[in-house]
């Protein structure tokens, strides 16, 4: 295991309806702030950070490491948090640690030796799903119709999973062997958890950090559109 990071760390997540920030020093959580903002992360997350930093008397350059939720979740929300951190890193040279939403809701869950499946709402009747056993993936992050998620876990030998995340109950209804945990922080990603994870993870150059979208872009093609040869080359 890596030695925990002992400098000043700020964590944030804007991938769900909850805007959340947390502040760490010497490896310990100082406090966490959150607000339910729906589609307003762009205008609310930096004021939330700024106000808390003023209370702490911290300057931006004092923060050596940023921990950021990179999804999956709202595409726009994912970008709002990560773009902000990228901008901050340009100015201060801070490094960052990306943490996925699916790992955040699973962190610290009482698995009792069972696989831990993370299920978050993905809209359009789908969930973002992953399942780990002892840290290793049983189901890699994917998006799947809610009604098919239980069957996927069963096929992967994870029917007895502990299922976490806001979409857990809908899946567990079809998996009688499973258990669920959806009380905070196992419902949606929270900055306090993202920070805890980031204390132990290796930092990364900010330019290397990309969102985890999982789902491909929504592309509405015009009627009569045909893929050009360049896009179908190699298809059989």
């Amino acid at each position: 295991m890596n030695r925990p990071f002992l400098g000043r760390l700020v964590a944030l997540d804007t991938t769900s309806l909850l805007g959340t920030v947390a502040f760490f020093d010497r490896g310990a959580l100082l406090f966490e702030r959150e607000q339910l903002v729906r589609n307003a992360h762009g205008e609310s997350i930096l004021p939330l950070i700024d106000a808390a930093m003023r209370e702490l008397g911290w300057e931006p350059r004092d923060v050596e490491r940023w921990a950021v939720g990179v999804g999956p979740g709202s595409f726009t929300g994912v970008r709002i948090g990560l773009a902000l951190v990228k901008g901050i890193a340009i100015a201060t040279g801070a490094t960052a640690v990306p943490v996925t939403s699916l790992d955040a809701v699973a962190f610290g869950a009482d698995d009792q030796g069972d696989p831990v499946a993370s299920a978050l709402e993905a809209g359009k009747g789908e969930v973002y799903l992953q399942c780990r056993r002892g840290g290793a993936f049983v189901v890699e992050p994917t998006h799947v119709r809610s009604v098919d998620a239980a069957e996927l876990l069963r096929q992967c030998g994870a029917a007895s999973s502990l299922i976490v995340g806001q979409a857990a109950a809908a899946i567990a209804a079809f998996l009688p062997e499973s258990r669920i945990s959806i009380t905070p922080p196992h419902d949606v990603p929270r900055a306090s958890v993202i920070g805890e994870i980031a204390l132990l993870e290796p930092e990364r150059p900010i330019d290397d950090i990309e969102p985890m979208y999982v789902r491909p872009p929504d592309i509405t093609l015009p009627a009569g559109w045909r893929a050009p040869a360049s896009m179908t080359a190699g298809e059989k």
Partner: peptide
């Protein structure tokens, strides 16, 4: 809006952190 937001958030991050 989604495209604008990326530039706006980067700019806010740079401006805020660089004072």
């Amino acid at each position: 809006v989604g495209a604008l937001l990326v530039g706006v958030q980067i700019a806010k991050g740079v401006a805020w952190a660089a004072r």
